[in-house]
Design a protein around this nucleic acid. Structure first.
Lengths: 191, 191
DNA sequence: CGGCGCATGTAACAAGTTACATGATTTG
DNA sequence: CAAATCATGTAACTTGTTACATGCGCCG
């Protein structure tokens, strides 16, 4: 039940069309909740049908024509209720941990390159987030909305730090055991 | 494509029936990949059909009758290939971060109890993991399989530490701003 | 007017969730 | 045997993914 609420939030920040929303999901929101345009159109339709949002009258209802939406009072109410709702923490669900467990049985060697690759990706993501934080700190200080946004960014930063730390620990532990001898990239190079 | 591989791993550790697998997913594996019995039966069927596992001949094929599976060589091959495969890191997708973003717009007050509640849950989970680590460290040292299992547990521990740290930071930041005055549990008490 | 990019969709499928149905085994 | 429990399964639905289809408008 999260995507519709993410859309309501985004539309409250600024009324938008489906494609504009898609682009915003690719950027900021997408750092912790991604969505494709198909999902977004589907849910925009449902939200409109339920009377939580409406298409701005300016836009006509033909196919390739831009169509902007805004949140109705009922939609805002629903969002307020969702924020206050009691929801259990989402439990962890990560394929890499699963693969490590499988590797415990069939051998860890072939997983090492993946661990190194993921480490590099997370280091990069962490650097990006830190750069964003640097930029943000120069601007706004007081407004609650900005402080909350910064908190979310802090979440991203600390999560990446977790990955970097854990992957480093894992590589240390596994490489130590298998006595060295792993050249740089014994894998096919994807796109 | 993860659940079938999780099942293969579990069956390699020990041939089992569907319900036994379900129970094992509730315990150890479920800490980072949960599954219901319906999902497991469905995938057991598919895996058998694809020739990656087979039912042990002892068990008859009637409905309420126990049916144990074991991994065939082809299944082990598939698992080996999966471990070595290149897969992009799963991006973050957490409703709590979304709700915080929504709260930035509609007001953070009603989210504070949830943040406190989640903090308590994560603190408890962390304590549980630490207790497990304590127990594990007393046993096995050398075997690779045990060291890898410990690494996975370390992952769980560090992830919980992340949550505890971040939630604490978030509560500090938000409570400071709204000047105090939030009684203990202004929410309905769910089951 | 032909092709490209913008924009909105449909369709088919895969994975996860929730509710329910049915057969077998134990035990009071 | 009745009831509880173990065990396997179906069905319907929601969410997310992938591939494709269609319409509009601009620019050469």
């Amino acid at each position: 039940m999260s995507l519709p609420h993410a859309i309501l939030t985004a539309l409250l920040e600024k009324p938008s069309s489906g494609l504009e929303l898609t682009r915003r999901f690719d950027r900021s929101i997408g750092y912790f909740w991604s969505a494709t345009h198909q999902q977004i159109y589907r849910d925009l339709g449902r939200l409109e049908e339920s009377g939580l949002i409406r298409a701005l009258p300016a836009a006509q209802a033909t196919r390739g024509r831009k169509k902007e939406y805004e949140v109705l009072p009922q939609g805002r109410d629903e969002l307020v209720a969702w924020v206050a709702r009691r929801e259990e923490p989402k439990q962890v669900r990560d394929p890499l941990l699963l693969r490590l467990r499988a590797a415990a049985i069939v051998g860890t060697d072939s997983l090492l390159p993946e661990l190194r690759r993921h480490l590099a990706l997370h280091e990069r993501q962490l650097a990006d987030y830190l750069a964003m934080e640097e930029r943000d700190l120069k601007r706004a200080k007081g407004a609650e909305e900005d402080r909350v946004r910064h908190l979310i960014l802090r979440g991203g930063i600390e999560l990446e730090r977790f990955w970097v730390g854990w992957l480093t620990e894992a590589l240390d532990g596994l490489a130590a055991a298998d006595g060295g001898a792993h050249p740089d990239a014994p894998e096919a190079r994807g796109s």
